[in-house]
Amino acid sequence: MTDGEIVRLFWKRNEAALEHTRTKYGSYCRSIAFGILRNGEDAEECVNDSLLNAWNSIPPSKPQNLRTYMGKLVRNASINRFEHYSAQKRGGTQTELAISELENLLSDNGDALATFESEAITRCINTMLQNSSKEKRTVFVRRYWYLDSIADIAKAYSLSESKVTSILFRMRKELKEELEKEGVNL
């Protein structure tokens, strides 16, 4: 079944849409959630939450790419859950490591900045990614969107870990410059 047909089922309020979405993108969503939370039970709950969110948001949404749409929903749900748990839980997960790598990109102006500037940050990331080569872009997205480990990324693209680390370092630097250029980091 194509994405378009599944989205049409959502629009018709046909609950088969949920089953088709789970069949087609369940494992993709689960791998994203697990990458962030490192807990199978939590990951499954986030997948269920994202299916519910999809049901509630389509319509009015009409995603052109259901896979990335579901990916965003489950990533969002997983990060929220991670944030909720992070005070009392685990250290050294890929999520925490990724956060620490991104830590110095913005000056610490607190939550107000986070809310106010979120869209501007996204715009800067998009600009930076758009101006990067496909290889660099996919490395960055694998690290900070999919929360893959540096070792996994290196393996996936037949690069050394130091090469991946170097690519990420330079791209974070480029992102920082883009943020500064747009006044986000001021």
């Binding site: 896979r67 965003k72 969002n76 913005l106 990331i125 997205v141 694998r142 969107w145 996994d152």
Partner: peptide, 24 residues
Amino acid sequence: MNGLTVLKAMNGIDDRFIAEAVPE
């Protein structure tokens, strides 16, 4: 915790970038 802010902002990146980096 501005690292988390950036990580959250990543959620809004263009679908194309997410799609081309789908893990295998």
